[in-house]
Amino acid sequence: MTDKRIDQTPVSEIGPPKVEAWAVNKVFGYGDSSVQAVSDVELTLEPGTTTALVGPSGCGKSTLLRMVAGLETPTSGAIRIGGEEPHVVARKGRLSVAFQDPSLLPWRTAASNVALARRLAGLPKDPEKVQHLLSLVGLDGFENKRPAELSGGMRQRCAIARCLATDARLLLLDEPFGAVDEMTRRRLNLELPRVWEGQGTTTLLVTHSVTEAVLLSDRVIVMSHRPARVSADIAIDIERPRRASHLTSPKFLALVTQINTALGIIDEPEDDASRLEARA
């Protein structure tokens, strides 16, 4: 495949980008049947940080992520990744999206699904890297299996490996563990961030799970229901790497409570929780 990429700078020499969104609006449909999916969102993702977007279903958080990925264009407002437009960054293969559905091509083996990302990004083949990523996500010995022969969790991990195959410095994770059972999800939550934390990436994570958001991110942004607006912005100052033991720490629980309150899942912080929060 001939490569007409604009910029040939090796991706590994580029640092994690800053992502900025100004007054972003997104309206679907026309006239009476139009739906305002995202309303006046202002957002800055600092380079090298992980930010989680949480909010009720259908609140437009996935739409926001898709706009950052260049899959949708804002109706008004602007999004810049390291000063460039999303679709330009996408064309350079410098962002990577993990979708809710692992979206592996069923006729390709695990290894060739991962390798496909490099081909799509216009990068040279690198079987060793593919192999390395697959063993990193624990798929040693499954390289030549097709998706139908893998379990749900394995498929999800394969999709994460594919997401990492291009050394993109911007990871956009749209509910990547949404289709996995609770136990597998918790394990992936703890294992997988180690794979990309070392690389220095800016990460945007969309999730339904408050625990997952706190466990993975440096910052959690809570969005309100339609139209999606930022209703709370909470910093998560828990040291990395995050471990299972964090899940039961008072600080962790206080943050979970704070976010649940912002989401309206809990009406009033209970006494214990607010005391914990105060201490944190």
């Binding site: 898709r66 330009v88 064309r91 293969g93 990577s96 999206v97």
Partner: peptide, 8 residues
């Protein structure tokens, strides 16, 4: 979407 996310 996967194809589009790599700008293809």
């Amino acid at each position: 979407d996967l194809i589009a996310s790599y700008g293809r």
